[in-house]
């Protein structure tokens, strides 16, 4: 009993000493990209646990809202799921992670590569048989993601498509379901987060990641920004960040949150 009380008191003391580094009761507001938001929310939860008394408020509204709010001071930190444009140089980006998706086909599919135009034709239903893109004479099963997923958003953005342009045969939720669907149907094509696909391919699941514009789909190429179907996930601030914002950004870029980044199927910047 006494030991428990002692632990409780020392626990409280440590907690208070940590939080006293940054003013008690402060609030940090993050707004912007709905892709970054779920990750930022997880990071914020862990940050709050380490710094009691601090509240981190995460709101979505798209990357442009992140830019706007950071500029106007409506948010301490903006969340932006792309690299900053030249006209946004008044803001400082801090890259937290990379997001990359790879096109996957069944392992038995002889097609070794597809151009962007071919992928667009397949997904819009203009091409419906593999023989038209150098494969065998078999129908193509187009696997698409459900609305609202960041992988869908990145895919649509890269190929300049609208979701209603896509003629899907199967719509899936998470990456695992996509991999199971493609590995169970030799005529199918889909896209999933590269990290998941690379892991499954290495562990014998009958799928193959296709290169894009000659760049192999690997986690390393996503990390380096070489892979075309990838993007930066940034936290942006205007001018010098406040001590609290600075502490949060440091934490978000540290190794302490790599497990959170990987849990969202994103790629941390430094390799383990």
């Amino acid at each position: 009993m006494k030991i428990k009380l002692f632990l409780l008191i020392t626990g409280f003391l440590t907690v208070f000493s940590v939080s006293s580094a940054i003013a008690e009761g402060s609030k940090l507001v993050l707004t912007g990209s709905s892709t970054v938001a779920p990750l930022a929310l997880e990071i914020a939860k862990r940050f709050e646990k380490g710094n009691p008394g601090i509240r981190v408020d995460v709101q979505t509204g798209g990357s442009s809202r992140g830019i706007n709010d950071a500029r106007k001071g409506l948010a301490d930190i903006g969340m932006v799921s792309r690299a900053l444009k030249p006209e946004e140089s008044d803001l400082t980006p801090y890259t937290v992670a990379m997001d990359g998706i790879g096109i996957i086909v069944h392992k038995s599919n002889p097609v070794q590569k597809l151009s962007d135009e071919q992928i667009i034709s397949i997904y819009t239903g203009a091409v419906e048989n593999w023989k038209e893109v150098g494969g065998t004479d078999s129908p193509i099963t187009v696997v698409n993601k459900a609305e609202g997923r960041s992988t869908l958003e990145l895919f649509l953005h890269h190929f300049s498509l609208k979701n209603s342009d896509i003629k899907a045969d199967v719509v899936i939720g998470d990456n695992q379901q996509g991999i199971k669907t493609v590995s169970g149907n030799p005529g199918s094509i889909g896209y999933v987060s590269i990290g998941t696909a690379e892991y499954e391919e290495r562990h014998g699941t009958p799928i193959r990641l296709l290169p894009m514009e000659g760049v192999p789909a690997t986690v390393d190429n996503v990390r380096d920004g070489k892979f075309p179907l990838s993007r930066q996930l940034n936290l942006v601030v205007k001018g010098t960040p406040s001590p609290l914002a600075n502490a949060f950004i440091d934490f978000a870029q540290s190794k302490d949150v790599h497990d959170l980044i990987e849990a969202q199927f994103f790629v941390p910047l430094e390799s383990e």
Partner: peptide, 9 residues
């Protein structure tokens, strides 16, 4: 089912 008629799902 995909053998009979794709996509099977």
């Amino acid at each position: 089912i995909a053998h009979i008629q794709p996509p099977g799902s």
